[in-house]
Simulated scan of single mutants.
Amino acid sequence: MTGTPAAPDPRHPPIPPVSGRDEPRFGSAERKAALAGAFAAQGADYDRLRPGYPETVLEAMLAPFAAPPRRAIDLGAGTGKLSRSLVERGLEVTAVDTSAAMLEVARGGGEVADGTGTLATRVAPAEATGLPAASAELVTVAQAWHWFDAQAASAEAVRLLAPGGVLALVWNMLDVTIPWVHRLSRIMHAGDIHREDFAPTVGPGLELAARSVHQWQDPMPTQDVIDLARTRSYVITAPEDRRQKVLANLDWYLHDHLGHARGAVVGVPYRTDLFLYRAVAGARTDGE
């Protein structure tokens, strides 16, 4: 039997369509380079406002190892959001980034508990770190793989991995399956929203071993949610009038439209996608 469809319930709006992208789009190599370089002067804000990685993600990242890994290399480490979490778990971490300013923030990111690992930094591109071959059981890339040359970075990761090692690619993304977050991401111009079943591009020397998705919330005062837009490459590189318009729109959306009191703490929903890869047999050449 057919009939008239029920009217939409305004209390439960439909889930909006999410991105169809497997990775961000940049338009040109020059635009990609300009956006990537824009973060260099935003280290303090990036470190304060961007979320870290929940315990479930770190546990899943280390789950493939029969014994805890000792050494990790964090490519595109930025301000060390992931690097420091691995140090806290006892690893000897080398944070690699092309920005000395971002790595300076990583080194000054606060004390960690006694008896934990160590943090070293190295200014170098992910595609050619200059580090010894087979020098880490774990190679990580957090929020940065899409900025690299995927084929060259894959080859470098394979070279860096010790036998039996794991490459972990991880992304925190706003959970845009939630309608109010979807609109927030549009106002904020969050360009790193991927399709729900996206798969990163990697070179032929790597094979996927595991994938997991983790949903969680990051509690933030409303002003920090607004300031989070300042860490987005679109806003960083926008003319001042456009930047101020984005921030004003976010202020209206959070306080007037959604009705949050100024300074109220909002649980910002995220999803974290984790991909674990192992080197294909024969792909790594010792001594390279």
Rank of each mutant, 00 (worst) to 15 (best):
A67H: 11
V158I: 08
R122T: 15
M1G: 15
E88M: 14
P14Y: 00
G108W: 08
P14A: 02
L274W: 02
L103M: 03
L91Y: 04
A238W: 15
D286Y: 04
G37H: 01
L247H: 05
A150C: 02
T94S: 05
G205W: 13
P179I: 02
H214W: 14
Y270L: 04
A209D: 08
H189K: 13
R89T: 05
G117H: 09
A144P: 05
T140Q: 04
Y270W: 01
A264D: 10
A34K: 08
E92F: 02
L228N: 02
P16N: 00
P14N: 04
E207H: 12
G203R: 06
F26C: 09
G263S: 07
S212Y: 00
T222N: 12
T56E: 15
E156V: 01
A41D: 14
H257D: 15
R89C: 10
W171F: 11
A142W: 01
V112F: 01
A66C: 05
I178L: 12
V176F: 03
R122K: 12
S99E: 09
F198Y: 12
V139T: 01
P54D: 11
P8S: 09
D227Q: 12
T94I: 12
E23N: 02
L131F: 10
S28A: 07
A283H: 06
P24Y: 05
S85H: 08
A77E: 06
